[in-house]
């Protein structure tokens, strides 16, 4: 039943499609790496927030008949900004009662934050079904608004691989989003504060910075990135429904651990790696369940061999080089 198709074409295709997919899914995981890796909040609501943003943008896009403002490449910016406001709400309703005044995160607080975000997540999932006049699954037309010039074709052929232009665009935007997140986390004083609060909140208050404020900042950044990447995910997949969450969430957790907790670039590379492995297996075997099993088996192996994350070194090297230069 299971037959391998070991051809050059399949391998090329696997790598190209995998890179495109990985870039998008990697950017989706970045919000999680910030809130989990840095603030030690196991955010089970992450996938729900991503899907919520995707559903919202699809709903607006279809309601306004594909108006320019609501096309994914533009919507991801302002929905990301909206996500910042949503992050404040998320922090004060869910996280603040649990970790607002905690100095160092122990297992106990990790568990409480996990529970709280679980509650928030299922409530957010449930909201999709109680809004009136709101259909539970959407499909958007990616050719509208951002088909790049060429007459009538929504795809390009590159090295014999048929690629949809919209997915290329989304992966480029995913890369940009990663760069922005990297810059915010590593090159600004905000990023410094965020990393400091994770180490020792009390020490931070000694130097005159309100740790609660920094925690809000972290949650806001993570939620904004999650919502922005949700729109990119919609642009990539072109269709969305609330149950997608059960596919997105495990993948995000896997990617974050693969990339090393708290490392933005590591997470992005983790996403690329996972995407390539998934697509290669899919192309070679033609069986999606085998491809997914391989993706998760990689995680298991990677974690046992290198528990700090396979790609966590990338960020260190980059910042080291930057300092030298």
């Amino acid at each position: 039943m299971l037959e391998l198709a070991l051809t050059g074409g399949a391998i090329t295709k696997g790598i190209i499609m995998g890179l495109i997919y990985g870039s998008v899914i990697g950017s989706v995981a970045i919000g999680l790496t910030i809130i989990w890796g840095v603030m030690k909040v196991v955010n089970l609501a992450h996938g729900h927030i991503v899907v919520f943003a995707a559903m919202m943008s699809a709903f607006l896009y279809l309601t306004y008949k594909g108006a320019l403002l609501f096309t994914p490449p533009i919507a991801f910016i302002w929905i990301g900004l909206l996500g910042a406001a949503f992050g404040v709400f998320f922090y004060y309703t869910t996280l603040h009662p649990v970790i607002g005044h905690v100095d160092t995160m122990t297992l106990k607080y990790e568990m409480s934050s996990l529970m709280a975000t679980f509650g928030f997540g299922i409530a957010l999932y449930g909201i999709h079904y109680i809004l009136p006049n709101y259909v539970h699954s959407y499909s958007v037309n990616p050719s509208i608004g951002y088909s790049i010039g060429a007459a009538g074709h929504t795809y390009i052929v590159f090295l014999g691989v048929v690629i949809m232009k919209s997915t290329v665009l989304m992966s480029v935007l995913g890369f940009l989003l990663t760069l922005v997140a990297y810059w915010l986390m590593n090159k600004t004083s905000m990023g410094l504060k965020i990393r400091a609060v994770a180490q020792d909140a009390r020490a931070l208050s000694l130097v005159g910075i309100n740790p609660v404020k920094v925690k809000v900042m972290t949650a806001v950044l993570a939620t904004a990135l999650a919502m922005a990447s949700g729109v990119l995910f919609l642009g990539y997949s072109t269709s969305v429904y609330p149950d997608i969450e059960s596919t997105v969430s495990p993948l995000c957790f896997v990617i974050v651990v693969l990339g090393g907790l708290g490392s933005v670039l590591g997470t992005y590379f983790g996403g690329l790696f996972l995407g390539v492995m998934y697509w290669l297996t899919l192309e070679l075997t033609g069986q999606q369940s085998i491809a997914l099993a391989v993706a998760f088996a990689i995680l298991l192996i990677a974690m046992v061999l290198k528990p700090d994350g396979v790609f966590s070194g990338i960020e260190r090297k980059l910042s080291f080089r930057a300092k030298r230069g």
């Binding site: 699954s137 499909s139 037309n141 929504t154 949809m164 072109t238 269709s239």
Partner: peptide, 14 residues
Amino acid sequence: ADGEALVKQAHDLG
């Protein structure tokens, strides 16, 4: 949802 996306992508891929 999947039926819709399948048609969509079959079209987009030409």
